[in-house]
């Protein structure tokens, strides 16, 4: 059922794109942008793979900031999103490399302190 519904919907879109150049162009631009955004997002996610802020902070708190410096803005955002380091959404998805790195550092420090207390639970 769903396959027929999707085939029908895509046929309407492809027919419209073929007969309406303005629509076709808009569609092409939108898909290109989506593709680019997605590729960048995936690349950032790959870069942060295996880097756990809390684990890294615990390993070497003093050198943590220097290790964060290797990440660009997109990667820092991916790090924050993946490890849920901005639960209240204070960054609103924005920030410079410096502010994002400071945010990650603070979040890692707080979590490390909190977890250390839990071992005394």
């Amino acid at each position: 059922m769903i396959d027929r519904a999707l085939a029908s919907m895509f046929k309407i879109v492809t027919d419209e794109a073929a007969s309406n150049p303005a629509f076709g162009k808009k569609l092409e631009e939108s898909l290109a942008k989506f593709g680019q955004d997605l590729a960048e997002k995936r690349m950032a996610e790959r870069s942060i793979d295996g880097f756990h802020p809390l684990a890294e902070y615990k390993k070497d708190a003093a050198g943590f900031e220097a290790r964060l410096a290797k990440f660009d803005v997109k990667e820092l955002k991916a790090l924050i999103a993946h490890h849920h380091l901005d639960p209240a959404g204070t960054l609103k998805g924005k920030g410079t490399k410096k502010t994002l790195a400071t945010h990650v550092l603070e979040a890692a420090r707080k979590r490390a302190e909190r977890d250390a207390k839990l071992f005394e639970y």
Partner: peptide, 14 residues
């Protein structure tokens, strides 16, 4: 699930 990935890494650490 990103939460599970992140927490699993943390569990392994601790």
């Amino acid at each position: 699930n990103a939460l599970h990935q992140s927490e699993a890494a943390m569990l392994k650490e601790q």
